[in-house]
Amino acid sequence: MELLWDGYIEPLVWIVAKILAIVVPLLVAVAYLTYAERKVIGAIQLRKGPNVVGPFGLLQPLADGLKLFLKETIIPTSANKGVFIIAPMLTFILAIIAWAVIPFDEGMVLADLNVGILYLFAISSLGVYGIVMAGWASNSKYAFLGALRSGAQMVSYEISIGLIIISVLLTTGSLNLSDIVRGQIGGVWEWNFIYHFPMFIVFIVSILAETNRAPFDLPEAEAELVSGYNVDYSAMTFALFFLGEYANMILMSGLCAVLFLGGWTAPLPFLDFIPGAIWFILKICFVLFIFLWVRATFPRYRYDQLMRLGWKIFLPLSFAWVMLVATFLVVFDKVPA
């Protein structure tokens, strides 16, 4: 009995507690990201944004969530029911489980995998299934077209993201996310975005495309596809897509912070007394602000322009950068051990 408690149940309780400690704040963050988005875009367009529900409209995301929760879930009669229901769940689960390897502070990580960055890459490459399955199962032309676009877009930009990650890994010498951050300790001038500055820009643009955000939100182009792959979804099934998309945005911002902005490290050494998790969250907020800023600023790309940018510009550019970094490291004998 004691063995059962010490060996199995206690670790299980601990892991569940840790998972809840990550997931619950994440879901709250997702809710308030939608609020922040409307406020930021409102400010950019000289409007007020949501300001009716609660002080400064702070309860607006809760009201929205409640509305979606109380609505009726409609499953179209011609839909492929099983796949139709699994698709939003898959999107949501994938957006959540990727957080297992993100290091919030020194040692503050659920699973310190040696292949952490590959795990993240693998999970984000699965994200396309939720969308493609939703588009196919809805049995509607608009949803299907949206899913096809989205699939092609995510597969294309994943390649350049992968190459950018490789060039960062070359300078770090480890696939462990905590080690990648440890390689950037010592202030803002040690952070990767200085050494990989062109790739930092390409990465930001690529994660916009990877998360289907404006100006690359073609999968849900409301003007032509009446909102794309999720047009037939309602109530909680729709909410899961929505939550998944925003959780993915936060995840990609976190990945950007880990790879380029020094993760939990302070920008100046004398600011080390502030806990690392706070720095990490601030960096995530910074990248998220770029997401919102771009959405309010740029018009939507045309589909062929999107593909041209991904395949003809970003792919060769990131390839060249990998070559350059590798050559530099070998010639100047700086290959990390």
Partner: peptide, 13 residues
């Protein structure tokens, strides 16, 4: 991870 990235993430798509 490679199996997931290559087969599941690209080929099967």
């Amino acid at each position: 991870m490679l199996l997931v990235v290559v087969y599941v993430g690209a080929v099967a798509v």
